[in-house]
């Protein structure tokens, strides 16, 4: 009973916070986009007669004051109407929604690859702490995340596509098209995860219970994997939540370079064309993703850390 109550409270609090975050995002995007120039100027040819411009202005509702536009927008968003795309002449949500699977596929695979490579690398580094294994792993990590993603992308295209002719440079029809974007998006994430995992492990290894485990006769490997890692994994999970944001940011560049038909590429196009409704919808969707990621991290935290778990279920003794 009290368990459920505690959990519901937690959920309600998080939902309230999520709604506030989303509202702030919508507002900022709205203000920035409206003050960045007249969308009609880029939509209509330069020699359009002024009265025609006015007709369009009225049709898109751009003749109203910014307050009216803002309130109107909030109202329609609340009803699930995200406006019409000026460019595609369709529902903005439909335009955006079509691109979601491609982005999920690329971002998801890149994140999974980054975790599968980064976490073991970070743990391995602590096995041979301060030896060549550690130094090699950590040097690779620094290299991985200090290389700008567009530069890595160009290097890969030059090498794998143009020189070796192993992979197609851009497109989305074949599974091979995914390989380079995954490397470009996943490598910096894997590097950061590896470093973070190592730091977290080293901190745990200094805790008194690790010495107590050694005093019990637990050999080194099970001590690091069975005793240190479950503790070290908790902050790593939080870190992964932030990495989802980095994936979205990195996705914009990566998708554009490799012509991957996801949200990132659509965002770049829509900003260029001042397609307000589409830009707003994408930003809202990204914000919602971040909020969900944070919520998931919190839930995962409770699942991984028995001390928090009790907190979550109230006084569940």
């Amino acid at each position: 009973m009290s368990r459920l109550k505690g959990f519901l409270w937690f959920l309600a609090l998080r939902l309230a916070r999520a709604t506030a975050t989303l509202a702030i995002c919508v507002t900022i995007v709205f203000v920035v986009l409206r003050s960045a120039g007249d969308p009609l100027a880029s939509l209509l040819p330069d020699d359009t007669p002024p009265d025609v411009v006015e007709i369009y202005r009225e049709r898109f509702g751009l003749d109203q004051s910014i307050w009216q536009q803002y309130l109107g927008y909030l109202q329609s968003v609340a009803h699930g109407d995200f406006g019409r795309s000026f460019v595609h002449h369709r529902d903005a949500l439909a335009v955006v929604w079509e691109r979601v699977p491609a982005t999920l596929e690329l971002g998801g695979l890149a994140l999974i690859a980054a975790v599968l490579i980064g976490v073991p690398l970070g743990v391995l580094a602590t096995f041979g702490r301060n030896t060549w294994v550690d130094r090699a792993a950590m040097s690779a990590a620094v290299f991985g995340y200090s290389l700008p993603n567009f530069f890595l992308a160009i290097l890969l295209i030059l090498w794998l596509s143009l020189s070796l002719r192993l992979l197609p440079s851009a497109g989305s029809d074949l599974p091979q098209h995914l390989i380079m974007p995954i490397i470009v998006l996943g490598a910096p994430a894997a590097a950061k995860i590896a470093r973070f995992t190592r730091t977290s492990m080293v901190e745990v290894i200094g805790q008194p219970f690790m010495r107590a485990a050694a005093a019990k006769g637990v050999p080194t490997r099970p001590r690091l994997i069975g005793h240190a890692f479950p503790n070290a994994a908790i902050p790593v999970v939080t870190f992964l939540g932030f990495e989802i944001g980095a994936m979205i940011g990195g996705g914009v560049v990566t998708e554009t370079i490799f012509a991957w038909p996801g949200l990132g590429r659509l965002l770049v196009q829509a900003v260029g064309q001042r397609d307000l409704a589409v830009v707003q919808t994408i930003v809202l969707m990204i914000a919602a993703t971040m909020v969900c990621a944070n919520l998931l991290v919190d839930l995962a935290y409770g699942w991984l850390d028995p001390r928090v778990r009790v907190g979550l279920r109230g006084t569940g003794k």
Binding site: R211, A213, K216, N231, D305, P306
Partner: peptide, 27 residues
Amino acid sequence: DQTLDRIRGGRIAMIFQDPASALNPVL
């Protein structure tokens, strides 16, 4: 290490001052 791991806990056990921090919190 192999020899020591059998001795530690098997022949000579040790307990510490602060029991709360000597137990692994997530196990």
